[in-house]
Design a protein around this nucleic acid. Structure first.
Lengths: 173, 173
DNA sequence: GACCGTTGCCAACACCTGTTGGCAAACGCG
DNA sequence: CGCGTTTGCCAACAGGTGTTGGCAACGGTC
């Protein structure tokens, strides 16, 4: 399972072969099939993920953005599942589905916990996702040098105000 | 060529097969090889791209963010080359290289045209890239509903202030 | 008309993919 | 011990991949 996540994170869905994963885990490829049924099943099991978002209702409203960026960065650096999902979502419809589900459900739910116009929560969550995923995409996938070289803390300081505005800012005219 | 771009944009690098591209273009797969040498060569030719960034020096400094988002959105909607590149960059190292080059050179150069601390231009460009690519990723690749349903003009209004701050804002303490 | 480069098509190669079935060994339990 | 289940491995299948070479038809040039 760890081997699967590593391969999926490093190579994406199509390049990560069952044979390579099995070799990493020092088992036979057919074992993978017997346990997970198919490659899609394996990926589905490997991409199980919980954002573990904190309860935003108990966060000082002025620090929502900061808390969120810090949380996402920590989650990303500590668990390569999200990177695997991110890579795979670009080419695999099932992975894109799952990513959509994670952000639509977990993130939108979190955004909804603190009082905001219900008609806008989905859009606010979407905008937050766009910045957070863009951060991950440029830092972990494309590896743009300025994004890789910047420390997490510095990124937090730059990006936090963005999320703060997406979350609590007044809608533009 | 058009068929190649469409396939790469829709399927990503590994799923887009030479045979399928050739079938779309109603030619023989071996013709593709003779013209472009290899699949990588074909992709390199198909992914040739110019952001066509406007001259930022001649833009009112207060509207830099707005002009940039609008330009990027128009560029993205009108030419699927960028989507192809974005999809492919997640799994193909060569495509990631090219994407890095495009944003490192073209975008950083544009950011450098208006006076800003040279030590910060790369970081500013990186942050802009993170928001712009995140926007594209959530809208065109993962297709998060709130990002797909929002009109370009509304997106401009939400995102412009973000880019504006990344470009001209004072660095956070 | 003779020549040569291009265009087009077909078949095949070598390789890798996910997936399947069978068969031997090990294990748990009555 | 005996027996059913699990574990592990090997070989093979069927299909798809990028890539190659050859061979016929065409088109312009002298």
């Amino acid at each position: 399972m760890r081997a699967a996540r590593e391969r999926f994170a490093a190579d994406g869905y199509e390049r990560a072969t069952i044979r390579a994963i099995a070799a990493d885990a020092q088992i036979d490829p057919s074992m993978v099939m017997r346990y997970y049924g198919s490659k899609e099943g394996l990926f589905a099991a490997a991409a199980e993920f919980d954002l573990r978002l904190p309860d935003l209702a108990s966060v000082s409203p002025a620090h929502l953005g900061e808390v969120l960026v810090r949380h996402f960065l920590a989650r990303w650096e500590g668990d390569e599942t999200l990177v695997a999902l991110l890579r795979a979502a670009s080419t695999n419809p099932g992975a894109a589905d799952r990513m959509r589900g994670i952000f639509a459900n977990q993130l939108t739910a979190a955004v909804a916990t603190f009082g905001t116009d219900p008609a806008l929560t989905a859009r606010r969550a979407g905008l937050v996702a766009s910045q957070v995923l863009g951060l991950a995409f440029t830092r972990y996938i494309v590896r743009l040098p300025p994004m890789v070289d910047t420390t997490p803390e510095e990124l937090v300081r730059w990006v936090a105000p963005t999320l703060q505005r997406y979350l609590t800012g007044t809608p533009p005219s």
